[in-house]
Write a protein that binds this DNA or RNA. Sequence first.
DNA 1: CGAGCACTTGATCGCTTTCAATAGCTGTGG
DNA 2: CCACAGCTATTGAAAGCGATCAAGTGCTCG
Lengths: 220, 220
Amino acid sequence: MDELVELDKIKYYRRFEAGQTIVWSGDQMEFVGSVVTGIATLTQTMEDGRTQMVGLLLPSDFVGRPGRDGAAYDVVAVSDVVMCCFRKRPFEKLMAETPHIAHRLLEMTLDELDAAREWMVVLGRKTAREKIASLLTILARRDASLTPDGLVRPLEFRLPLTREAMADYLGLTLETVSRQISALRKDGVIVLQGKRHVSVPDIGRLMEEAGDDSDGGFLV
Amino acid sequence: MDELVELDKIKYYRRFEAGQTIVWSGDQMEFVGSVVTGIATLTQTMEDGRTQMVGLLLPSDFVGRPGRDGAAYDVVAVSDVVMCCFRKRPFEKLMAETPHIAHRLLEMTLDELDAAREWMVVLGRKTAREKIASLLTILARRDASLTPDGLVRPLEFRLPLTREAMADYLGLTLETVSRQISALRKDGVIVLQGKRHVSVPDIGRLMEEAGDDSDGGFLV
DNA sequence: CGAGCACTTGATCGCTTTCAATAGCTGTGG
DNA sequence: CCACAGCTATTGAAAGCGATCAAGTGCTCG
């Protein structure tokens, strides 16, 4: 794997604090990279201040658009974030020379496109309650897939996002997010320990609430 | 350009009638290709029948996911459609051998991803009126970019979608679409000749209504 | 202890949906 | 030629869901 050696030579790490903007929309991007630890968001803001999250970056997710100069969206660190970065020009050069990297990038971009389209259904057609359940399902799945041993029961995870960030992801207001989370808790779909720790007694139930065709309680 | 010759060898054309489903979600896809003439949509349907369009395929747009077996969405011909197809296996083989094709495909996928994210803002944060104006802006822009001479004024185009298809694109009901189109017409933002022919006296005005930061009346 | 922040909860408003009736168009068959 | 079915689109009235406005709670950190 020669290309990994080559990638190693040009990689470096950067650390960002929670709340810090990693990239400003419209700016030149001098690097591409991937999230190592922490959570970041991709957001678009309209002139009047309405904002919509268009991507949620969890560890292992790629950031940047090889071949494009400007950043299309703000990238904001939600928690403290460590990123593995490659300077853009050397990375693009390497990409041009190593087909394997381009292929891998295409795969990842297709995955992102699928995720974006899945999210369009959530935004366009789901109720507030279904939106919340959908987000929780995704977070639960991502969390479980990162746990090496596979199926952890009972399913528990920490909410990485504030109510406002969830609202921006879901096209809702933070008040509605809060109300729907309370409602799911009252109905026993989720159990909260504090404001940020969620446990899901029955993932199948949660997926039903999300309106997805789950018909099974298993992940992945 | 050797790869074009190779592509030529494996390409063929298929014709689909308006209303016909080109690909069923979940089915194996035996080809990839691109739209030559006509309009098709990518849609996702929930079990209870709610449907959301997640892509609009105009001439030159690519269809298919190299490296993936199943189709993720229904592809439906809105008008009569002619597609240029390549059998999937030979195409993938060619792609593996010719880095240029993989690069081109990555470019196109990044474009689609941008379009999907732009649409997430529309779905999540815009009002019904802004949604309609956004769709009309996109159609006007696509239409103009296809006209070889560039800037055609006055801006006129045929609406390729039914009210219901627009509703599915915008996450609205067809009644709301109808009402908002009527409202934009009453306010002079657009002029209708019949139900399907639109002319836009002032594209800047339309873009303002879309809530986008236009600050200029020029296209592209 | 008080300021600041994230969150919750309540009351009301209004936009979009829902339900329903009607119009216009096209094609078919008596 | 007209009647009628079937489809697309428009319009009206009423209902409902989420937004908005407004307190108030609980936690952390100075």
